[in-house]
């Protein structure tokens, strides 16, 4: 976890430096704000990884001497198949078409998105099939 933390913190630090130099030199706000946000995107996950890396022992993937047996066990729960991404994608499609062709597209669009949110969540909770 330490390498990941250093990577993100390093990027955040660089963006922060760039932001300070640029903002003070150019006095142009749009770019300054965007670079500041870039710095946060480095520091927030980087800080989180660093905080964790000090509180956990090295994971098998961080250990250069790790054996495959050392990493044995459940590594995650993965859905075999799911219809909900498709449902949500079509819903989002209709929502975007509502921007162009008329507000009534929102009714089926948001309906499908909401249905997919409920369906996908409950599928994740109880495990499910198509």
């Amino acid at each position: 976890m330490k390498a990941e933390a250093k990577l993100m913190l390093g990027l955040g630090l660089f963006f922060g430096l760039m932001c300070a130099v640029y903002w003070n030199w150019s006095l142009e706000n749009a770019g300054g704000v965007m670079m500041f946000a870039g710095m946060l995107l480095g520091f927030l996950p980087g800080g989180y990884f660093y905080w964790w890396s000090r509180r956990m022992k090295a994971r098998p993937e961080d250990d250069p001497y790790a054996t495959q047996a050392g990493g044995a066990g459940v590594i995650g729960s993965f859905p075999g198949t799911s219809i909900w991404p498709f449902t949500m994608g079509m819903g989002a499609f209709l929502v975007v078409l509502a921007l162009v062709f008329g507000i009534w597209f929102l009714i089926p669009g948001l309906g499908l998105v909401g249905w997919a949110v409920l369906g996908g969540t409950s599928e994740g909770r109880r495990g499910g099939k198509v």
Binding site: F78, S82, P85, F86, G89, M90, A92, V96, L97
Partner: peptide, 23 residues
């Protein structure tokens, strides 16, 4: 790895890409 970290989000990415291209 056995799959991407968020397989269903991955599928959603594809459907948004396809519908975006069609749009």
């Amino acid at each position: 790895a056995p799959d991407m970290a968020f397989p269903r989000l991955n599928a959603l990415s594809y459907w948004l890409y396809l519908t975006g291209a069609i749009t």
